[in-house]
Design a protein around this nucleic acid. Structure first.
Lengths: 336, 336
DNA sequence: CTGTTAGCGCTTTCAC
DNA sequence: GTGAAAGCGCTAACAG
């Protein structure tokens, strides 16, 4: 049986309340007694019982990171930092998968919410696809911070990247290299980032007086197979593009694979860009030119923001957009 | 304020003990009252308070997955399944990073153990590098299940793959393709899998009467940079290998990168194998021949095993080894 | 500055 | 078959 405050009080020769005061750094304790208690804590090997604290404080001390499996893998380094943040603030952080289209997933979330298992939530897209999560949490008055939310019209705190601007950056890069026939591989239609990236691409073309050609738009679903298939179609077309902006790194991998298979040389005959800067994008051959959205920083900040809100210190801008970086590697070169 | 058993009891017109009986599916309740209580639960929207239950039962209902960041990334699908398993058994599963060489990391673990934050642990290598984790948990009598443990001499439950046999499989594959000068890129010396893979490689060569040549052994640390550097050295040597078994997929990526850069064609001039079957190994060009250790299944089984132990139903073999699969892709071909 | 008391929501004796 | 009462370890309110 683990030691309790009673044991500590007995050893220190004081009441349990005094022990409680010392543990929680409350005032009104003489230095002498404080030291005596701290010593007693060490002697009996005491550490507070979380369940008891949670019960009496009516707080779960738990945060839920609601993630759509397949959308984005939290690298272990990030995970590590997030858990550290939680730990230092006394929160356990749980990563829960969530499929917005599965009824069981929704039911489970509803359970967790009504049971008040978590003090707050952080969500990734497309968990917020249909507004179910947001509505539920708002109804039960449970704080949320969204990562890259699909719908930014609601007044929910979020941390996000700037997909539109990022796409402009990438398109600009290709145009700067002399490319004029630039393909764009679109992603899922219900994803905000797909649309934003497409718009960035279109607007940048327009700004440079390059006409928009629907024949150059492929559909990749932002995954490998989609990129592979779309590239095959585009490269076999009578008037193929000189550059493909794949919309996502995974799709870009598919493009590169298809090109290699067809004997199309990258970047000599075809420039390829991705978008996301997955960890392997620097290790495939040739290195992939892409956009590095600071997703780790975004996630980290989302957790910090949520904790601030939970502590009752909501910072002033509750909605923050972080800038990205263009990463130029070997997969793009001057147009032939 | 959420509803409690008291509220339910009031609505159902019975005592709280009866409500408790219904919640926990205990006998000695007439069907009529049971129904009345179940109805009342729905009416008041009751769900049990976990903290209270934890307090009175003296159980954390928490499992810790101790992971070495960088060793292995739990794919989100796996994560999803693990959380599901935990959820269905009423356990929260927390993923905690652990650096066996960091004092802060050890201190934190010690804290968690003494505070009895978790009912049990699952560890990945090399968390068990120095025996600290195992000793600590054994001292405090907290159940552990190890994944691919480095030291299997202790009597601790584990789920593991068979690195030795896997390496044999891969080496065999290369020899079967007619390769005789086969390089092996070693990993960290303190990792059991490095040694086992090396031994499998050596023994298989021996079985086929191929002499072991230390000049063909490179050091990759099982990562991209290591593989890249080692490949450069090997390929520039006067008598280069016709195949490189990279010891890990990440190292294999480095080998492929280096080869492409030097204009060495894969697989025509050089066959390359990895080991691990990371998710991107099928999407790089050419697809990587490798070993698929069922790491997802291993992890899943480890969690299930731990829960069985926690429930007091330890199954008979507490140490299980799961077989792997050879995955042949485009990166290996007949020797020239 | 310190201690006593009550109670968070639940399960567990032990009567009835 | 059912319920009253005690208590898990802690914090909050209130005396002293």
């Amino acid at each position: 049986m683990a030691a309790t405050i009673k044991d500590v009080a007995k050893v220190a020769g004081c009441s349990i309340k005094t022990v409680s005061r010392v543990i929680n750094n409350e005032p009104h304790v003489t230095e002498e007694i404080r030291l005596r208690v701290q010593n007693a804590i060490r002697v009996v090997g005491y550490s507070p019982n979380l369940a008891a604290r949670r019960l009496v404080l009516q707080k779960a001390y738990m945060i839920c990171l609601l993630m759509y499996p397949g959308f984005y893998q939290p690298a272990s380094a990030l995970l590590s930092r997030i858990m550290d943040i939680g730990y230092s603030e006394n929160y356990d952080i749980l990563i829960e998968p969530y499929y917005p289209t599965h009824k069981t997933s929704k039911d489970r979330l509803a359970n967790m919410v009504t049971a008040r298992r978590f003090d707050g939530f952080v969500t990734t897209p497309p968990c917020d696809m249909d507004g179910f999560v947001a509505d539920l949490l708002i109804t039960y008055k449970i704080p949320v911070v969204q990562i890259n939310p699909l719908d930014r019209s609601k007044n929910i705190p979020y941390i996000a990247g700037n997909d539109y601007q990022d796409a402009c950056l990438l398109t600009q890069h290709l145009i700067g290299l002399g490319h004029r026939r630039i393909s764009f591989l679109n992603g899922p239609r219900n994803m905000r980032s797909s649309l934003d990236r497409l718009h960035g691409y279109r607007d940048t073309l327009a700004r440079h007086g390059i006409p928009y050609d629907p024949a150059l738009i492929g559909n990749s679903e932002f995954n490998f197979d989609g990129g592979y298939t779309a590239a095959q179609i585009l490269l076999k077309s009578p008037h193929p593009p000189s550059a493909i902006y794949a919309g996502s790194d995974e799709a870009a991998y598919g493009v590169i694979y298809a090109a290699q298979e067809m004997g199309v040389q990258i970047p000599a005959q075809l420039s390829v860009c991705g978008h996301d800067d997955l960890i392997f994008s620097k290790t495939i051959w040739p290195g992939l030119t892409t956009i590095h959205q600071p997703i780790d920083e975004i996630t980290e900040q989302a957790v910090l923001l949520l904790i601030d809100i939970l502590k009752g210190n909501p910072p002033d801008p509750l909605q923050i957009i972080l800038p990205s970086r263009l990463i130029v590697r070997g997969s793009t070169a001057k147009a032939a």
